[in-house]
Structures are given as C-alpha cells and as structure tokens.
C-alpha cells in the first residue's frame, strides 16, 4: 500500500507530522513532506491512526502501485 496526500484537501494542520514524525515532516509553509510512502499491506497502527486523524481527509492509504499521472 501507499501513503498519499490529496493536495486539494490538505490545509497543513500538521497532525500527520506530529503522529508520524519518522515518515512526515513539514515544509516552511506547514505542509507535509512525505519521506517514505511505501506501507506494508497490514499497515501499522500508527499509520492508520494518522490517516484517521487528518481533519481534512487529505491523508490516505491507497492500493495504487504507481503514482503516474497524465
């Protein structure tokens, strides 16, 4: 699985970075920077908790293998 941010929803609340400091930091404007997007299939509790905590529903776990876009 993959951790992903819907940038159209993210308002930079910062809860994800507080809950997952080893994966997510914040840029100078307060928006999350993902350092490791790969999540094993039985996603760790901490990851699920961070996804559930996002007030904007912007942080998601997806099954998409790639991030290609066109």
């Amino acid at each position: 699985m993959k951790l992903e941010i819907d940038w159209t929803r993210c308002d930079g609340h910062g809860l994800c970075a507080a809950l997952l400091p080893e994966r997510i930091t914040r840029d100078e404007w307060g928006f999350p920077v993902l350092h490791n997007t790969a999540v094993n299939p039985e996603a760790p509790t901490a990851v699920r908790r961070a996804v559930a905590a996002c007030p904007a529903l912007a942080l998601r776990l997806t099954n998409e293998p790639s991030e290609s876009r066109r």
Binding site: W7, D11, W29, G30
Partner: peptide, 9 residues
C-alpha cells in the same frame, strides 16, 4: 490555489 505547496511555493 488548490494545493498548499503550489499556492505558497
């Protein structure tokens, strides 16, 4: 203006 990094960056 939808995405923070673009809007501010």
């Amino acid at each position: 203006g939808q995405c923070g990094p673009c809007l501010f960056g």
